[in-house]
Simulated scan of single mutants.
Amino acid sequence: MLDNLPLSQVYQFIEPGPVLLLTTALPGHKPNVMALSWHMMLDFEPPLIACVVGQANHSFGALRQSGSCVLAIPPASLAQTVVSVGNCSGKDTDKFGVYNLTPLPAKHVAAPLIGEAIVNLECRVKDTRAVTSYNMFVLECLGAWQNKRLLHEPTLHHKGYGRFGILSEEITLKSLMR
């Protein structure tokens, strides 16, 4: 027998990707970082990534104004840091300083890379047509950086309401994709 699932809980079962840390930077301000779970791939080369950033987030204005950001994939070992970053505002908190994240210079954008991340993606805002209706930015990846010693670390996946999954097991099956 199937039970009714409240529509407000659907996202917990659809959200497949890892929790990201999105960094932004504006001239004259400290760089900011926010936790981000609502994102998806749109295309492969160049990589296009859609992400939803709520208007109430300090990063919304910075992303809109700067037109660029970094998407960083943290290891699951940073789970408490990721949650803490997501539970405060960059309007009044130096998140890099408070949570001991290492900002590293990016090559293509002003926003910093995160030294503790598995992967950092430098992105520019490519399309804002869905921002007004859905707070959805389409980002084009301009550069990607990996920390080879962290590549096999498990990633954190948001399941809603403070619950997270940790992806730590992989299987490889035959694929026709390259």
Rank of each mutant, 00 (worst) to 15 (best):
A76N: 02
L104N: 13
L142R: 12
N4R: 13
A106C: 13
S77G: 09
G61M: 05
R129C: 14
L173W: 01
M41K: 12
Q146R: 14
E140Q: 10
G90A: 11
H58K: 06
L78C: 05
P16F: 11
F96T: 05
G61L: 02
P6W: 03
P27Q: 13
K30L: 08
E116C: 04
Y134T: 15
N57W: 06
A130T: 08
A111I: 04
I118E: 11
M136W: 01
V10E: 01
K148S: 14
G165M: 03
G86P: 03
G162D: 00
C141R: 07
H152M: 07
G17Q: 04
H29R: 14
P31S: 00
K148A: 14
L176C: 07
L156M: 02
N135W: 08
P105T: 09
V70W: 09
T23W: 02
V83F: 03
V33K: 02
R64Y: 14
Y11C: 09
L20T: 11
T81H: 01
L42V: 15
K126L: 00
L150R: 10
T93G: 05
V53N: 03
P112G: 09
V19C: 03
Q146P: 10
C88Y: 01
T155V: 06
R129T: 14
Q80P: 12
H58V: 10
F60Q: 06
H158Y: 13
F44L: 15
Q146F: 14
N87A: 05
V109C: 10
E140L: 04
A110E: 15
E45C: 12
G67H: 11
H58M: 02
V33D: 06
A144V: 14
E122K: 07
K95Y: 08
M40W: 07
P47T: 15
M177T: 15
L121P: 09
A25F: 05
L26P: 00
L151D: 07
Q65W: 04
M34N: 08
L63H: 02
F13W: 10
A130L: 13
P18E: 00
P6D: 06
S168R: 07
G54N: 13
V109R: 08
H29D: 09
A117C: 10
Y99C: 03
L150N: 01
R124E: 08
V119C: 15
S37L: 01
Q65F: 09
L176E: 14
P103L: 05
E153I: 02
S59M: 02
C51K: 00
A130V: 02
A106S: 15
I14Q: 01
